[in-house]
Each structure stands twice: as C-alpha cells, then as structure tokens.
Design a protein around this nucleic acid. Structure first.
Lengths: 291, 291
DNA sequence: TCCAATTGTTGCAGTTTTTGCAATACAATA
DNA sequence: TATTGTATTGCAAAAACTGCAACAATTGGA
C-alpha cells in the first residue's frame, strides 16, 4: 500500500468519478483504474461498486477511506515535524514566451512569491517554439506559453487565459490597407507575418480557408517586431491582443475588425507529467491554476 | 511510502543491522540498502547514521519508526476488520521428496494444520530432482527436499534438519562385502547406487576423492529401492539415515562405519522468493522454520 | 603486520511493475 | 439510431526494482 495510491483512492472515494479524479490527480484514467484494481487485489475486497454509469463506495471502501485519510494526515504531520523549515525551498526553472510573459506571468509569480517565498524562480524568456524542446530535455521544468492546437503526448497542460489574435494596421499611415468595398483586398494589402509558430499556423490556415494567396511583405520573428513594422506603415499584421496592449507602440496601431476572427490564443502552463510529483512544481502548478 | 518499505524500515530500526534484516525479510542486502536510500530521499532526511561497522537511528529515524509502527498496526487492524474470516484460507501446493516426507514433513504439517486450519495443503511427493523444475514452472509453490550443494539463484532456501548419509549393508547376507584388512575392498564389493540426484553426486565425489572406480551392481531410482536391494544381499548402498530408520526393512540392514563420512544431507524448505509475499506461503515458511 | 572475514554500498544488467495510448463495451441522451 | 460520456483492457514502451558481483572500509586474529 503506497502513499500515491492512497491519495488516488481518497480522491476517488470523494469524487466517485474516475474521470474527474484522474484529471485532478494528473493520471490517465487507465492508470487510475489499474491502481484501484491493484488496491482491491491487495485488500482482497471490492472497494467501489461501479458500472459504466456510477461509482459507489462499498463498506470495505468506507473503511479504507477512513484509513487513507488518517494515514495521509499522519504522513503529512510527520513530514512537517521533520522538515526544519516546513516551507518548500530550492528553485524551479521556468521558460516563458514573451507573449506569455506579458499576459499571465506577473499574476502567477506574484501569487507564488507570496505562497512560497523560499523558492527561487529561474526564469528564462525566449521564442515560444523552444519551450517544448527545452522541457523534454529537462533544461527547464515548466513552460508558460500559448498552448498548441494539438497537445503533444506525455505533457500536462493547463490553459489559464485566452487572448484574441487580432489583425492590426498602422494608425498614422493608412495607405497600406487597400479596401475593396467593405472588405480588405488581401491581394494588394501587404502582410507582415510571423516566421513560424502558432500564430503563423493560424494565419496560414485562415488564408487557406479564404482561398487567398496573401501579399507577404515580410516574415519576422517576434510579436514586438511585427508591431514595430506595422506601426511604421509596412503593412498589416497579426498579434495576440495581449502583446499589443502592453506595447509602447500601441498608440500608433489600430485593430481591424475582420471576419471570421482568428481563433484566440490560449495561454497556459505546461510541464512533463512526472514533474508534478515534485512538490515545488506541484505547488507552482496549483497556484498558477487557482483563479 | 509503501507498506513493504515500512516493514523493512521497521525491522532495520529494531535490528540496526542490514545483514540480519535483509535475511529476516527475505531481501538481498542490496535491495535493503536501496529501500532505505529511497525512503531517505522521500523523507528528505537521513534515517540511519551508518558506516561499515555500526548503524544508529537518527532522530528523524526515531520519528519515522513511530510512524511506521503505528501505520503497520493500523493496516493490520484494517485488514483484520475487513476479512470476514480473519484466518488465512485457500490452498498452497507442496512438493516433497520421499526422503523429506519421512523426515520433516509430519512435524511441519502438524504445526501448520494447527496454525492455519483453513488452508488446504496440496501435497505431491516424487523424485527430488523434479522439485526444482516444478517450482520454476509455478506448478508448485513450495518444495521440501534435500538442499543442493550450491543453491540455484533466485530461490529462497531454509535448512531445517540434517541426516547423515550412510553406507548400508545386508545383515543376513554378509558375502557381498569384501574386506581387505580393515578396509572394504571397493573394487570387489558390489555397490547399489542411486541413478541420479544429490546422494549420487556425493557418492561419485567420494569415490573420486578415494580414486576408486566402484563396482556398480545396479543403479536404481529411489532410496526405498536401494534399501530393498541391499536387504536382499545385492551389495552395499548409500541412503539417508532418516529413510533407513523409517524403513520396514531396517531390521535386515546394518550401517557400515566408513571414513571419511559422506557429508550429511541437509533437509529443508525452498520456494521462489516472490512467493514469500503471499501471506499463506509466508505463514507456512515461518511455521516450518519455527523450532 | 598482513590476511581473512564481515558489513554496507554501488555499477550494471535483467526482470517485474506501472503507465499511456488506442480500442472496446456499455449505458444514457439527443 | 447516432453520439457522447464513462470505465476498462490489450499491448507496447517506460520506469522502478532487484540481484549479482565487485568494492571499500573495518575488525580480529595469525
């Protein structure tokens, strides 16, 4: 009988719902099912009466639930009494795209600082695309970033906020935007695009849906660069609204009303599942997720 | 934190001796060391001050020891309260050579019956050589047998008793035994040997040490057969004293004083280590070992 | 003083256990 | 009837654990 198993069991005994428990505890439903089966085998007694539609505790389950609660509590107490400083300490490494840094990092960091003042945060910012590889290489423990459309396997994601992906045009130089009636004439209007990344993918798909071959004026790296070029009148661009709002150049930029809108950016936090067993990272994760 | 780990820790916290604990709990010293290291890592604190010569509990160790005792106790209580019949039940399968059946089986079985009346014992007897293979194939859970000279890997052995391996000769027919002065003339005296098995190996080696090529009269299977043939005057033989004592033919047999004596048979109990996690088998094991 | 025996630890490889993904089975709902 | 939500399972990959053998440190005698 193992601590982790006990915690899973306890949560399930509360929620009575495999799916919810597996999500809450960062395990796949499969692993949860098997854990319960394992415990049942060890105890030699069925703990939950369950079919595909409902989950109920058996009396044996009730008994184990009480044991689990007591044991987990005692364990926590022991760990507390042992740790000279009961607080978490050490450091955790974050990687953060610039977009995310603007959007949500300050709030999270503030809350985390308050909750775990003794944990040092090693923050790196950089290109969004690098985050995932650094995560896999173990160079970094958590990344905060725009969530890709299809989440790579083995990673744990938590969306935190959304920000629209908006078309922007220069305010002071109206020339570049060429209209054709109500609509923008994309064949003539120069577009500044991200070199790569999620917003580029979104934009490519948007043009593809419209069956338009855009007039690409430049491909640049970084949302700030896009904003800068747009503000200089080079053409229109696409950036997350969040970045625009924080930009010192926003005064010189206007947001275009385009339909259909681009799907919004979902900003969130991501790590490899295994990291969540590290109490510091788990704390960070949960603080990030709170409100 | 796992039950098995806790039990190991508790035992070590009592014995303060890695070797003894590892033997008592049926783990290799290596596994024990690692278990302790694992717990220490999980707790984040050294539990034992140890060098190659002494082992002492740290204060953290003291605290964990108390936790361990309480938790194990609660767990036992829980299991008790759950099991409708608190007693072990089900069945366990034994394989037993005829030699062992005479020697030690009755005593063990008697004690076990008393302790675990609800456990059915499925006993098979047969040739000693088959025991090990049946064990490996999982056809049988425990064997009781003469222990081989070099214990095969991965198996758990416990010697229980010894019985001398003795040379026997017919009482009523003195002819076969040919003396040459004080000594027996092995070149002329016919010998009845076991076809194979441990006593055969011992005997072969005995002759090899003496640099004698024995006059083999017959090779037979089974100690009873050897006794029978010897009693009929076919030659001398070698059997465990235990078997001889139980034989109805023992009146017609005499034990020869031969030097050097053959190494005695060590009778004991054997199983694959993994089986000892099965509570029924563990109970059997420990009852067999008691006194 | 040197050799042998004892004791806990560690590198490495083999084995067992656990996990995740994908597919499945079943019931409720639209 | 098709679709959605739920728990489970087969199978292969990953992780954890174990045993063996070698090792270092220490003790106790020859």
């Amino acid at each position: 009988m193992d601590m982790e198993e006990l915690k899973l069991f306890r949560h399930l005994a509360e929620s009575l719902h495999f799916g919810r428990t597996s999500r809450a505890c960062h395990v796949t439903p499969s692993a949860l099912t098997r854990t319960i089966q394992r415990i049942e085998a060890e105890v030699g007694e069925r703990l939950f009466d369950r079919d595909n539609r409902s989950v109920r505790l058996t009396t044996a389950g009730e008994a184990l639930k009480q044991y689990a609660e007591e044991t987990i509590e005692r364990w926590k107490a022991l760990k507390n009494s042992l740790a000279n400083s009961t607080a978490l300490h050490g450091d955790i490494s974050l990687y953060c795209s610039v977009t995310a840094a603007y959007g949500i990092l300050p709030a999270i960091l503030g809350r985390f600082r308050k909750a775990c003042p003794e944990v040092q945060i090693k923050l790196q910012t950089g290109d969004a695309a690098q985050g995932l590889t650094r995560l896999r290489n173990g160079e970094v423990e958590v990344i905060i970033d725009a969530l890709p459309d299809k989440p790579p396997a083995g990673l744990e994601f938590m969306p935190l906020t959304e920000t629209p992906l908006v078309f922007i045009a220069p305010l002071d130089f109206p020339e570049p935007v060429v209209y054709e009636g109500q609509e923008i004439d994309w064949r003539k209007t120069p577009v500044i695009m991200a070199e790569q990344g999620l917003s580029r993918e979104r934009l490519d798909r948007w043009f593809a849906t419209k069956k338009i071959l855009p007039n690409i004026y430049a491909q640049v790296a970084g949302n700030e660069a896009i904003i800068a070029m747009v503000s200089l009148g080079c053409g229109v661009g696409v950036v997350p609204l969040l970045v625009l709002e924080k930009s010192p150049l926003q005064e010189q930029i206007t947001v275009l009303a385009i339909s259909p809108e681009l799907a919004p950016f979902s900003l969130g936090i991501c790590t490899v599942k295994k990291n969540l067993r590290n109490p510091k990272i788990l704390a960070f994760w949960e603080i990030a997720g709170s409100r």
